[in-house]
Amino acid sequence: MITRRQLFQGIGAAAVGGVGFGGYALAEPFGTSVTPYRLSPPGWPAGLSLKLAVIADLHACKPWMDVERIEGIVAHVNSLSPDCVLLLGDYVAGVRISRYSEPVTHAEWSGALGGLKAPLGVHAVLGNHDWWEDQEAQDRGCGPTRAGLALERAGIRVYENACVKLSKDGQPFWLAGLGDQWAFYKHRRGSKSYVGVDDLAATLAPVTDDAPIVLMVHEPDIFPKVPARVSLTVAGHTHGGQVRLLGYAPIVPSRYGARYVYGHIVERERNLIVSGGLGCSGIPVRFGSPPEVVMIELGA
């Protein structure tokens, strides 16, 4: 196991721009900011004001995202008094990041998230790493996953192609959660392909009225297929590029490149917000894409 000191020394020595760049890139993963958005999507009902807290891509591991840090994030989110908390997947450390870190157990990170409080509940979808780290689920070709079960034991509802009708001040809305689009990975002749458990039609099928819909997804790649009937789609997965140089992200895990890398995107009057997330994937470095909790005020 590489030590934290060795990792700091190695990346610091190799970082572009020398020690200043390396030190910043290694320090940035330990900060957390709150990024606010205020919008009224087309057709959003007058009088429905909804405050959503979004947590994405924790990638729990020591020392980068240990239990104490997760508990601090939970306390901060609770202090913002959201109506709902939306968890967008990748709670576990990826395989590659684990080379530089130590594990945080499922009971530990899910127990910390179990401290989240909101009057309209805490709601979750799974991410690709939550599927990939569970070899038994990979072998079966279906869930449940260890991460999903841990969330449920912590009292958090996990959505897989499902939705629920909620109400704020007598005004109804639908909250939907899509199954992960990259749940299973396949290796063929040196290349990788991904198979999802996502079913957008089934996710939205229970909607029986014209109340607005908020859709939770992990990967933003589904967005071109999301109908205008959905008021807002929220996603994670990209980490905002994780490393951005002068606003450019050289690596984005999306078939669309940087099209959905980060922030508020409007296409054909449809709204998508992509969180930069909180943790790290691949290597424990973030640069130009600081960790964030997203706060969305709809109809405010």
Rank of each mutant, 00 (worst) to 15 (best):
E160W: 00
E108Y: 03
F21M: 10
W132T: 09
P291K: 08
A14F: 07
A162M: 06
A14C: 12
H264K: 09
F287Q: 06
A124M: 05
S167A: 11
N161W: 03
P220H: 10
R4N: 08
L126H: 09
R146A: 12
S81H: 14
F21L: 05
H237L: 09
L87H: 06
I11W: 15
L80V: 03
H129T: 10
L245T: 09
G143F: 02
D169A: 11
M1P: 15
G196P: 11
D83V: 00
V104M: 05
G89D: 11
G114R: 13
G263D: 09
G148W: 05
C163W: 03
F30W: 09
R4I: 13
R5C: 01
G89V: 04
D169K: 02
W109K: 07
G141N: 07
H237K: 12
S101R: 07
I251D: 05
E297I: 00
D130G: 12
Y91A: 05
H239T: 15
T208V: 15
V207H: 10
L116W: 02
V16H: 08
V274M: 10
W109T: 07
P45I: 03
F223L: 08
K165Y: 01
L166P: 02
V122F: 00
L48T: 04
G141R: 08
P41H: 07
D130A: 12
G127C: 11
I156Y: 06
A258V: 04
G148F: 09
L204D: 14
G121S: 07
R153N: 14
W109P: 04
I11R: 02
M1A: 15
H187K: 14
A300T: 08
D130V: 07
R270H: 02
P29S: 11
V67I: 06
A118R: 00
F21V: 06
V252D: 10
A15W: 10
L58P: 06
L88R: 09
V77S: 09
V158G: 10
V34W: 01
P206Y: 14
E136M: 06
S40P: 01
F184I: 02
L50M: 08
M216I: 02
G179R: 07
D198H: 14
